[in-house]
C-alpha cells in the first residue's frame, strides 16, 4: 500500500535556510545540506526546497545548493523558485532535482507546464499553488510572486487545468494558514482532492501530527511542513510514530 508522505520544506535564500511568516520577515535558520541530511536520517520521505528570493529578484534557484543536496540525499528532492523556462527546469534536474515546482511562471504562461511535461515527463513537474481566501467570495484565489499579486484564477480550476496540461502533482499552500500553526486549510484540501486525480501535497499551517492526520483525512497524499521541523519542536520520527499510532500508513 502506498504510504502517506511527510515532507520537510526548506525555504532557501542565498544558499541559507530562512524562516518567516507569510513569506516575509525572513530570518536565518541554518545550512540546507546539513538540515536536509538530518531530516533524511529522521525518516523524511522527500525534501522540498523553495528559493523564496528567486522570483522577486528574478534569480534562478542556486544550482550549487541543489548539487550539494543531491550528493547527500538518497530520497527525492523537489526544487522550486524562479523556474521561468524549460531550460531553468532542465538545469535543476541536471544538477540533481527529481522534480521541479513551478508557480508564478505557470500562472503567467500556462503553456510552460505542457512544454515541461513533454520534455521531462509529468513525474518531474509539480505545480505549486499559493491559494488565498478572498473576503466576501467563495473559493480560493491563486496568488503569485510570493503573495504580492492576485491572479484572478480560481485555485481549484487552475489545478484542474494544470492536470490537463500534464502536471504530475500539486503542491498546495494555503496563504491564509502559512506560518500560523492553525492547521492546514481542510476545506481547500477537500475541494482540491475531489477535483483532480494527481497527488496533492498539503502545505501551510501545520503545528503537529494532528494537523497532518486531518489533512490526510481531507484528501492529501502528502504533507509539507517547515517551521515545526526547523524549530526542533518535532522530529520527522516523532511525527511518523504519532501518525502510525493513529493508523495512518507511513514508512517507518
Amino acid at each position: 500500500m502506498l504510504t502517506k508522505r511527510i515532507i520537510p520544506c526548506l525555504d532557501v535564500r542565498d544558499g541559507r535556510v530562512v524562516k518567516g511568516v507569510r513569506f516575509t520577515g525572513l530570518r536565518d535558520a541554518g545550512d540546507p545540506v546539513e538540515q536536509a541530511a538530518r531530516y533524511q536520517s529522521q525518516g523524511a520521505d522527500e525534501i522540498v526546497i523553495l528559493d523564496v528570493s528567486a522570483t522577486p529578484e528574478g534569480r534562478a534557484t542556486g544550482i550549487e545548493t541543489v548539487a550539494a543536496l543531491r550528493e547527500v540525499l538518497s530520497i527525492p528532492l523537489t526544487v522550486g523558485g524562479g523556474v521561468r523556462s524549460v531550460a531553468d527546469a532542465e538545469r535543476l534536474l541536471g544538477a540533481g532535482a527529481d522534480k521541479v515546482a513551478v508557480n508564478t511562471a505557470a500562472v503567467e504562461r500556462p503553456a510552460i507546464l505542457s512544454e515541461l511535461a513533454r520534455r521531462t515527463g509529468s513525474q518531474c513537474v509539480v505545480l505549486a499553488i499559493d491559494a488565498a481566501r478572498q473576503p466576501g467570495q467563495s473559493g480560493w484565489e491563486v496568488v503569485t510572486r510570493s503573495g504580492v499579486n492576485r491572479s484572478g484564477l480560481d485555485a481549484v480550476q487552475w489545478a484542474r487545468d494544470a492536470q490537463q496540461l500534464g502536471v504530475g502533482e500539486v503542491l498546495l499552500t494555503s496563504w491564509d494558514r502559512d506560518g500560523t500553526g492553525d492547521g492546514y486549510d481542510l476545506e481547500l484540501l477537500g475541494a482540491m482532492s475531489a477535483a483532480v486525480d494527481i497527488p496533492i501535497i498539503a502545505s501551510g499551517g501545520a503545528a503537529g501530527s494532528d494537523h497532518m492526520l486531518a489533512a490526510f483525512q481531507a484528501g492529501a497524499d502528502a504533507v509539507l511542513a517547515a517551521s515545526i521541523f526547523h524549530d526542533g519542536i518535532n522530529t520527522v520520527t516523532d511525527i511518523k510514530a504519532s501518525l502510525a499510532a493513529k493508523n495512518v500508513e507511513v514508512r517507518l
Binding site: L2, R5, E46, S122, I198, P199, D221, R251
Partner: peptide, 23 residues
Amino acid sequence: MRVPQFGWNRVEVSEASAMESGY
C-alpha cells in the same frame, strides 16, 4: 487511483534468494 503513483510503497518478496522486503 491517483496517477502518477508518487511515493513510498511496500515491496514484498515471497520467493527465496531474491531481494529483501522494504519500502
